[in-house]
Design a protein around this nucleic acid. Structure first.
Lengths: 342, 342
DNA sequence: ATGAAAGCGCTAACAA
DNA sequence: TTGTTAGCGCTTTCAT
């Protein structure tokens, strides 16, 4: 910076003012400084600046992984937004328990970011409390944490509408495939189940525990077993509502492999509308990760500006039923017999 | 830090030494300092430290987007590696030309990172030169830039082996679907075409320009058109080698929709082995984004340690043919007639 | 509108 | 082994 100052024939204060775009610089001086800076390929050191301003210019993001569609989509929309605000994006990936423990123990984001966005974790109360001690705004994405700023979709309404779609197609035996993570059910999972139940109740269809099963996303064998159980019920389902697109697609593949036509014989509905759903022409309940990312980013920037800003700390985004090729009116056998059972 | 020093009854130098794990601290003092630091919830400010050490503790990554499988997988393996080395991961997303221009103009990574990993761009010479001026190691991932450290797979060999697989199945009319990005063909694209041609030549199969077409990844209509052209050739292909899994899967869907059985009638081979390939049981040439990410990260750390380290600046990773359900021996019509033409 | 000087929180000599 | 001191490169009063 001293070099630039010298070259432009001004003081470093003036260079600083110019480069930060303060209006208290005369046009000609500004021009000279900018020219000098360009010629010297000069860029302000954030480190040095942050030392005196107390702001780092970083926004940190905590994610379980980066190869889930949700993270990719959310961060892709978040990043340009931060960039436009002159912020850097810092990513912490916590793939396993060890990394997670270490993160919450050492809190590497401390003093190193102006805000933290926490993506899709089911945090314990202790962990949440620990994050409170960071001294910066913490925004929870895809989860509601009481009293803390959060951005998420209305999972209850999403599942409610999805289930209604199936009911409207004439289905009465509708199975629900919940997804169970390593650490049990997520908040979303519970909410989606709730929406499913609400829709059934509202339609006067009795709840049947046999129709609700839990599976793990990546466990294809487990999904097959779950389907097997459903298919061998006295009254098997005519429709399956999976809480996640991956499980829905896996189900479609398993059913079709067994020559059970989807959607003619059994309808399958997913939740998320990730790219995979489109590839498989899967009917699903869509949520927009891009919107979530954007809203979270904007909320973060707002809270950095004014952490006391109590205005709209919870952002709830809508979902949309996306009808595609795996849901259809309920199967009505032409003749008699057992045809009606999937 | 002063607080910690006071609480532990030592100087800030000692605190600094302790917290950096230097061995020149007596055990009891170390214990006292660590206790004080823990009690005060103290964390060293990287900003202040970097100001004096000249190192930022950041590794920057430049990516076109984050929702491509490759970035997700590569970064997911890269991140823990950096974390283990005490480095932060800084992500720059450059989705469009405007952001790209702005990035290379302002070079926000300047003075803000100790190394830069450039993912899958086809940079102009000017852009590369600009990055040289950053004054930090720049590692090119999934592309070879002459004289600069790079990590990539052997695309020529990959395509060569893939094509050989098809030749070994008896195919002689093998089409190649190249992928064209917004800015023309990528380096990989050219290399893969080359491997394809080498395999044919080595097998004595004449090259036929009619069998090589360019499409755009997301343009399903364009892919359908390309397939239409191939299917209406005098001698249509019996196998299609797509340079990217997405295009291969799109092709499979289009062919099957037209009742052209894959792989019985036409074989389809992809390249990448991204998750989508597994979902569609697509035969493909596998590359490991995770390995690439890891190698790139290790190379970066090595170059940060010693930027003069000339040792193995180019890392070339292998590919593997992954046979699944979309390649099969060439179709031999039983009787006479035109059956043989797809 | 501009400059001089102080100091942000840390590390790295150097001394002890 | 520990403490003292002098900056690192900026921003920010406070003068002018």
């Amino acid at each position: 910076m001293a070099d630039v100052a010298e070259r432009a024939g001004v003081s470093t204060s003036t260079v600083s003012r110019t480069l930060r775009g303060l209006s208290t610089v005369s046009p000609d001086v500004r021009a000279r400084v900018e020219k000098a800076a360009r010629e010297l390929n000069f860029a302000v050191s954030r480190q040095a600046a942050s030392l005196v301003t107390g702001r780092t210019g970083n926004v940190a993001v905590l994610v379980p992984t980066l190869d889930a569609w949700f993270m990719g989509a959310a961060l892709s929309s978040l990043a340009p937004l931060l960039r436009a605000a002159g912020m850097e994006l810092n990513v912490y990936v916590i793939p396993d328990l060890a990394e997670r423990t270490s993160f919450f123990e050492r809190l590497p984001a401390r003093r190193n970011a102006d805000a933290l966005l926490v993506f899709s974790f089911d945090l314990t109360d202790e962990e949440t409390a620990r994050l409170d001690s960071l001294g910066i705004p913490v925004i929870y994405v895809s989860q509601h944490v009481e009293g803390r700023p959060s951005v998420y979709v209305d999972d209850v309404a999403g599942a409610l509408h999805g289930t209604r779609h199936l009911l409207n197609l004439g289905h009465r035996r509708i199975a629900f495939l919940a997804t169970q993570g390593a650490s049990g059910f997520s908040f979303s999972s519970n909410e989606r189940l709730l929406g499913y139940q609400q829709a059934l109740t509202e339609a006067g269809v009795p709840l049947d525990d046999d129709l609700v099963t839990a599976v793990q996303v990546a466990d294809r064998r487990g999904i097959a077993e779950a389907l097997g159980t459903l298919l061998s019920l006295r009254e098997p389902p005519t429709a399956i509502f999976a809480e996640q697109d991956e499980v829905a697609v896996a189900s479609v593949r398993i059913l079709r492999r067994t020559q059970i036509a989807v959607p003619e014989r059994i309808s399958v509905l997913g939740f998320d509308d990730q790219p995979l759903a489109d590839w498989f022409d899967l009917s699903t309940v869509a949520q927009s990760a891009a919107d979530i990312g954007r809203e979270a980013g904007e909320l973060a920037l707002r809270l950095i500006e004014d952490s006391e800003d109590e205005h709209q700390r919870h952002v709830v985004l809508p979902t949309h039923v996306m009808p595609r090729a795996t849901t259809a009116p309920v199967y009505r056998p032409q003749g008699e017999g057992e045809e009606g059972r999937g």
